[in-house]
Amino acid sequence: MRMNADRFTVSAEEYLAESSALFYLNDAVTQLLEHREEFIQFGIGRYFAEYFTSVKNGSHILFREFSYVKGTAHNRTSFIHIFWKCFRQIGKNRDLLTMMEYTSLLQLLCPDFPAEMLQNTAKIVLMEDAVDCPMSLSDFIYSFQIQFYFEEFLESVLVIYEDLLEGKNPNAVIVPTSESPETISSEETDVQEGVDSSVLLKCIEGLCERFKHKHPPLPAIKEALESCTRVSYYGFLMALAKHEGISQEIGALPNRSDLLIDPEMDQELERLVAQVAISPTSNSSSSAQGLKEPCRKPSPRKSLHQRKRIEMESDGSTEETDSSEN
């Protein structure tokens, strides 16, 4: 998280609000109160030091509740990054997973991660139909990133979009804030036709002002909308997901071409695989097929091509996966 140079010209309150320091201090104290016996022994000063070090490193969001994970921009970035680190191997194996399967992977990291967010992500990848289709990791993760990182902004864009579809005058539209879920659920309107990109862009420009900087950079939005004259909501989101500039701005994922490249982790894996191959209990054929994870997922999962391997051990909370079999 980087603050810019005008941090010296704003008031102390504004600086604090921008830094989300209070959010973290609040959470740190709450955690402290919940586990006070433990942390008294640990040393309270040391506890705060560890807490903020983990926030800095981005490991603080692991296994935390969803409201915390989405609480700050830094938390969202950290979560996307950790998801990528943990499940990168799926992409390397060219496995395709369904939305439900991605949901259970996410829930390994954040137990109450809402499935709804994944439905929206699947709509971006699959252009709103056939949301049960399997998706590649790279298609999924960039769309997920847009959906998760800019959730509130995109909800407001959807409201605008639907108003435009109904032919309302966009300038007269008073857009409700993100806390109005009932307006968002009306998705059965005919989105195939789409709306005029330039009109949508005008409305989004106004929206961006209200969102301060919690929106994708305007030049990137322009680029995404300029490519064609009419655009559907999910087409627009797809263009955002594919925009490398936006991804760089978020800073959680490498460029698409580098998504599966991580020589350090590959080496570590190879080392582990070699260990497993040497040990007498292992199946000797495993090394012939290239990289294999040392640990298999214990829970029953439908495998789309042959097998599914992930780097993390399951905590068993993935029963929902089975419902994706059809």
């Binding site: 998280m1 600086y15 604090l16 830094s19 320091a21 070090t53 926030v55 830094h74």
Partner: peptide, 24 residues
């Protein structure tokens, strides 16, 4: 918090991490 507002570092979270580590 006083230190944070006084110094207004570019990376507030890193600052707090370092501050608490120093204190500890």
């Amino acid at each position: 918090l006083l230190k944070l507002v006084e110094a207004r570092p570019e990376d507030p979270i890193g600052f707090l991490a370092e501050h608490f580590t120093n204190e500890a």
